[in-house]
């Protein structure tokens, strides 16, 4: 049987693939959601509590930044995942399946995303923050109306990067009980030498990554008004040429 016949007859593709694809999407969806929910405020806190931040808290900042974020980030994800199985069981009642895997995926991705958020927020010029403070903003208003809005293109890019990382993590999670495309590739491709399934899974993962990246780039461009070239792209301001060359 050649490759293309197999696409329609191989049970690994016809039966298992849709199910595992859904499991992968579920993992990315759930962990992406929680990463945003926890990682964004954590990133804001890291940037605001820095010594030169909006509300300096040097000691707390050092503890959270140094201990929690850096330690979590320095543990290899595969090991982190295994060590978090008890926590996953506690929270979800099971240690296998995409929902359980989402626990460790989230915990692995939150510090990563929080660091990216912190970096994006740090890029907002201090002059803008001063301007907002002088006009009578509360610190919270500075965060919501200045920091998050001005850094939005960077934040979207950071979240895109995080989601792409989650795709990779989720494939790893699949092998140790999470299910999804990672397990499919491992079971069929590695253990049964079924190259077709392996190739198809790789193509699908590449397509997911491409889709996330394209969507992220598009969204970041839409909200980016920092340069004149992109300033109008959100609204599609159409302008006529100021001078029209006669006869052209």
């Amino acid at each position: 049987m050649d490759f293309f016949d197999q696409l329609f007859t191989n049970p690994g593709i016809t039966r298992a693939l849709p199910e595992e694809f859904a499991a992968t999407m579920q993992m990315i969806g759930i962990s992406g959601f929680f990463t945003l929910l926890v990682g964004l405020p954590l990133g804001v806190f890291l940037s605001a509590s820095a010594p030169d931040g909006l509300r300096p808290m040097p000691l707390t900042n050092k503890v959270i930044s140094g201990v929690v974020v850096n330690i979590t980030r320095s543990i290899p994800f595969a090991i982190l995942m295994v060590s978090l199985i008890p926590l996953a069981r506690l929270l979800t009642g099971t240690s296998i399946g995409p929902v359980a895997a989402s626990v460790s995926l989230s915990i692995g991705a939150i510090p990563f995303f929080a660091r990216l958020v912190e970096t994006s927020l740090r890029d907002v010029s201090s002059g803008k923050i001063d301007a907002a403070l002088v006009m009578g903003s509360t610190r919270m208003q500075v965060v919501t109306k200045v920091l998050l809005r001005e850094a939005l293109p960077g934040l979207i890019a950071a979240f895109t990067t995080t989601l792409v990382t989650l795709v990779g993590y989720s494939a790893m999670a699949g092998i140790i009980g999470g299910g999804g495309l990672g397990r499919l590739a491992y079971n069929y491709g590695l253990q049964r030498f079924d190259t077709t399934v392996m190739v198809v899974v790789i193509i699908i993962i590449v397509l997911i990554v491409q889709a996330i990246q394209l969507a992220g780039d598009w969204a970041a461009r839409r909200v980016d008004h920092r340069s004149a070239a992109t300033a109008g792209s959100g609204k599609r301001l159409r302008r006529k040429a100021a001078v029209q060359v006669v006869g052209s």
Binding site: S125, G127, K128, D130, V146, R149, L152, V223
Partner: peptide, 9 residues
């Protein structure tokens, strides 16, 4: 301010 410090967004 010297550089206006407007919000780009």
């Amino acid at each position: 301010f010297q550089h206006a410090n407007l919000m780009d967004s």
